[in-house]
Design a protein around this nucleic acid. Structure first.
Lengths: 340, 340
DNA sequence: GACTGGCACTCGCTACAGTCGAGTGCCAGT
DNA sequence: ACTGGCACTCGACTGTAGCGAGTGCCAGTC
């Protein structure tokens, strides 16, 4: 059961070679390319053990070995060290993110950058509303019975909703409403607003009561219930690299999964502070993504997390490099956000 | 040179069969499936003519015929009539679009609906800023030297930008600025704003001059220069239908093209009023999309066009059905927009 | 003159057999 | 505990043969 150092070295070598060549790796090729100091026959014995333990497998008899999901897992956990980024990559990140003019811009640049650096599919979640605070609420009269509600969050996100009032409302009442909701709600986390909104209705003057009631339902919907999470995606064309060998020939399930925002949120959005999460193949809960791996992490200004980002690719992936890139990009984005 | 009626009927039959079966169609199968009233041999002669004229071709000797781009073009222009939508489809459209709460919602629902109905890749352009008018401008103080500029367009689009002021500004000056820009700009088309913005700077009181100058550059950038067109995409998984036969085996170029917003805008965004545009294969200017066809049209409230929408799929596509669906969806979206 | 039936021909597809070689498992020897 | 050697497996590739859908052409018919 014990895997001695050499067996681990063999596993590492297999993973590295397979990731590089995309072909099953045999015992002879292994000893040629790595200084293992033993003969192919010995390596074969080690391989037999590794296979028995479920870390590698043979696509067919008389072929080389290929890492299993479990093998990648061991590799990621114990056999790899995060590669430091090359200076060129650092420069690329900085150059790419400087000059973003607004949140949309930041997110779009980030997702493209991530896709380009990792050569995988990149996913970036917009700063989550649930983790944002209200910076300002604006009411814009559209007609006498319609208002446009605009909510600006401290993370830079802006949400708008149309409010249909039960009765026409004069302009100065709108001013009152605006003042009231701002006084009460600005600065609070969105998740904490429901009681405040309720208080607003209860405390509002009679002439505003009707409008405030309608407004409050829209507010609650916008701020809390409709957890409007947004996602940006880039690099789907990278799925076609490596021919059709990865993803066992069909991109279908992957593309389908990528279209479901809910699915992506599950992948990317549940990050814990400063941890990089790596999901390998089967570890993934989504059936369509059983052939893929996901590397994700949270980002945010300072130590707080406001959203997640990550990449998705074949299980046969350069984990150390990808992990390093994902982390670095998340850190830079966090710094960028902190400046606002 | 003259293509008599029967030759046209043969072409139509070839297109229909090929679209349905995805296999080259031979003379015998043709006479069996369509009432052409002649023998296979005669059809073969007609086919030879059609091939000579470039409307069909043989993938290889001793295979059936397949329509060329030119053949599809003739089919679309002269041999097909737009299919009326089924009641089920009408209902689907209505059910899908009712209940959209804001512009984002409308666009997302539309693009998914379109992808689902046509079973192709759907693209929807957000209402173009160039074709919108200013409904309201809002300035939200973030700090003493920073403002958030929020522009609400009549089409429902909301754009925001951060403004870094050259010097701290008191709250009542912000109020003044807000009033001034709204007085001057509300109601005008975005494309017409530059002189108005310039006038704002020239006419502004000395104590606002500095802030107004900075604001004006951001305004111009946001409103005019940075033609921030947005695009929604759905149904990329549909590209994998029909195995790898369509798109000659590689989705790569297609996926790459779909990632370029500029490319999509070219495809979708240049719609003329109430025309449905059909681009078949080679007619497409974008090299990556030489194997694809695009059906697109404009949409907007009433007769005006504020944006484009359409679908992209293999040249082997059900043109009459797709055209009908695209048109119908565009009409419904227009109506929906008119209600706001 | 337009259409048709018949016929020879083409050529991709499939199945099958044979060869090659990378890679393995096992075992006896050091 | 490691190694060299050996028999074995099996996928990849090659070449051959037969099948069949489909064609082009031509002579014959209405």
């Amino acid at each position: 059961m014990g895997l001695d150092d050499r067996k681990l070295a063999v596993l590492r070598a297999i993973v590295e070679d397979y990731v590089a060549t995309q072909e099953p790796v045999g015992s002879k090729a292994l000893v040629e390319r790595h200084q293992l100091g033993v003969s192919p026959a010995t390596v074969r014995n080690d391989m037999a053990v590794l296979e028995e333990e479920g870390y590698i497998r043979q696509p067919h008899t008389s072929a080389g070995r290929v890492p299993t999901d479990r093998g990648y897992r061991l590799f990621v956990d114990r056999l790899s060290r995060v590669k430091p980024l090359s200076p060129a990559e650092r420069r690329a990140i900085e150059r790419f993110l400087v000059g973003a003019v607004d949140l949309d811009d930041v997110v779009h640049r980030t997702v493209r950058l991530l896709a380009q650096l990792t050569r995988q599919v990149a996913v970036v979640q917009y700063p989550s509303l649930a983790r944002s605070s209200v910076r300002h609420l604006e009411l814009v009269p559209i007609s006498t019975t319609r208002l446009m509600l605009v909510m600006i969050a401290d993370t830079g996100r802006v949400e708008q909703r149309l409010v249909e009032l039960p009765a026409p409302i004069p302009a100065d009442h709108v001013t009152d409403l605006r003042r009231l909701v701002n006084e009460k709600l600005v600065g609070s986390r969105l998740s904490e607003t429901p009681p405040l909104v309720q208080a607003l209705v209860d405390e509002s003057a009679p002439h505003l009561r009707g409008a405030m009631t309608t407004l409050s339902t829209v507010l609650l919907e916008t701020l809390v219930e409709r957890h409007e999470e947004r996602i940006a995606l880039a690099g789907t064309a990278n799925l076609t690299r490596g021919g059709l060998l990865d993803f066992q020939g069909s991109l279908r399930p992957i593309l389908e999964a990528l279209e479901e925002e809910v699915v992506l949120l599950k992948l990317i959005g549940e990050a814990e502070p400063s941890t990089t999460r790596v999901l390998i193949g089967d570890e993934n809960e989504i059936d369509n993504l059983r052939a893929a791996s996901v590397v994700s992490t949270g980002y945010g200004p300072g130590a707080t997390i406001v959203g997640g980002l990550g990449v998705l690719g074949p299980t046969r992936m350069d984990y150390p490099g990808t992990i390093a890139t994902v982390r670095a990009v998340a850190r830079y984005v966090g710094e960028l956000l902190a400046q606002n």
